[in-house]
Computed example of a mutant assay.
Amino acid sequence: MVRLSAISKSIFVLLLLTLLSGLFAGTTFAQSTRNRRAAAPEEDFMYQYSIIDALMAGVFDGDLTIGQLKKKGDFGVGTFNRVDGELLIDKGHVYKIAFDGSVKEVPDSDSTSAAFVKFFKADTIIYLNGPGLTYEKVQEQLKHILNPNGIYALRISAAFTTMTTRAEKPASKPYTTLPEHLKYNQVVFELKNTKGICSGFLLPPYLARTNVPGFHLHYLADDHKSGGHIFNFTADALTIEIDVAKGFTIENNTNAEFGKVNLQPDRGAELKKIE
C-alpha cells in the first residue's frame, strides 16, 4: 500500500483540480490547505438533534436549548420549535431568519426541534470563478471533486448577484406534516446583489431518512438583514471552505411526540420537493 504524506496529498488534490478545471468552461479552480490544530476526536464529528424524517412527519418541538446546542458545534443549520424560521450557526453565533425576512441572534434559552452542527475547522479551501456560477453548477463541480461517501461541512462566501431563499411561519397545534405546513406557510425571498455566507452540509445518500442527502445550505447576509434556506443563487466568484467530518452522531428528539410519530413511511420523495 502506498501512503501519501500530507504534502503529497495536497499536491495530488491540486493536480486533480487542475485537470478538472478543463471540464468546466469559464470556471477556474484553486485549492489550498490550512494548518489546523488537531481537534479533539469528539469535535470532528457532525452532531444532529432529531432526524429529518421526524421533522417531515410533524415533530415540530424539541427539548434541546440553543445553549446546549452550542456545546455540540459552532457551525450548522436547523430550525426552531414550531418550525419558526430557519436556524444558522456561524462562528458560535446562532441566528434566526424569520418569515418576515428579519434576522436576529437568539438567546440560549430558545429551543430547537432539529439541528445539524459541527465544530468548524476548514481542511481545504476551493476558489470557483465564473462568470454566471449558479447553485446547480457549484453542486455539480463539488460532486466531481469530493468523495461521494464523505460528510462535508461547507461555508461558502461570495457577493451574490441573486439569492433565492425561504423561511417558514411558525406552526400551531395540532401540527401537520412539514410538506403540508410549507404549502401555506413558506415565504420566499428574492434577494439581489447581496454579500454573505452559505452554511451547511453536503451529505452522502446513506444518511437518507436521518438527514438531508446532498446539499443543505442556509444563507446569512453580512449585514444580518436577510437570509434563509437556499433554493438558488448566482455569483461570479466564490470561496468554499470545506471541513471533512470523521463521522456523525445522532441524538433522538427528546420530546414526547418523537415516541408517538410513525417513522415507517419513506419520505424521500417529499423531501426532494421541499428542499
Score class of each variant (00 low, 15 high):
A245V: 02
H181T: 02
I89T: 15
A114S: 11
T254K: 13
H229R: 01
L220A: 03
S199T: 11
G76L: 11
T18E: 13
Y219F: 15
T65W: 07
A245T: 01
S111Y: 10
I242V: 10
I126P: 01
L146H: 01
H93Y: 14
F75C: 02
K72Q: 12
V117R: 10
E86Y: 09
A269P: 02
D266P: 00
G132C: 05
Y175G: 06
S226L: 05
G150V: 14
P265H: 09
R3S: 11
V59P: 03
L14Q: 15
K118F: 05
L182V: 12
F29C: 06
F215M: 05
R36E: 12
N129P: 01
T177R: 01
T165L: 10
L202Q: 02
E270C: 02
I197P: 03
P179A: 00
S50W: 10
L128Q: 02
A114H: 15
S157F: 13
R36C: 06
T124R: 11
F231P: 01
D123S: 07
G268Y: 09
I274L: 06
R37G: 09
Q264F: 05
L19G: 06
K192V: 11
K143R: 13
M163Y: 08
Q141P: 00
G132Q: 09
L146I: 02
T254W: 04
E43Q: 10
R166E: 13
A208K: 05
I11R: 01
Y175V: 10
S113E: 13
D222W: 03
T249I: 13
K273P: 02
L87K: 00
R209P: 03
F60M: 04
A39P: 03
P107V: 10
V138A: 04
I125A: 05
A237T: 09
E86K: 09
T28P: 00
S226V: 01
A40S: 13
R82P: 00
G200E: 08
G67R: 07
V117D: 10
L17A: 11
L178K: 04
P174N: 08
I51C: 07
L263V: 04
T27K: 13
A256P: 02
S172D: 10
L55N: 05
Q141G: 00
G92M: 01
A159H: 15
Q186L: 14
E42L: 09
V103R: 03
S109K: 11
Y135K: 01
L207P: 03
P179H: 01
Q141V: 09
D61Y: 15
F75Y: 12
A256M: 06
T210Q: 12
R155F: 00
D63K: 11
F233Q: 01
R155I: 00
L16C: 07
N211Y: 08
N81H: 06
D110C: 14
D108G: 07
M1P: 11
N211T: 08
A30E: 11
F116G: 03
T161K: 13
A208Y: 04
P170D: 06
K137N: 06
L14S: 15
T79G: 12
G73Y: 07
M163R: 04
D53G: 08
A269V: 10
E42T: 13
T161D: 15
K225F: 13
N147G: 05
T249K: 11
R209S: 14
E168Q: 14
Y127H: 15
T249F: 13
A153P: 02
T162R: 04
I230L: 15
V103G: 02
I125E: 07
G78Q: 01
S10Q: 14
D123Y: 03
I230Q: 07
Y206I: 09
E180Y: 08
Y219Q: 08
Y49S: 03
L191V: 07
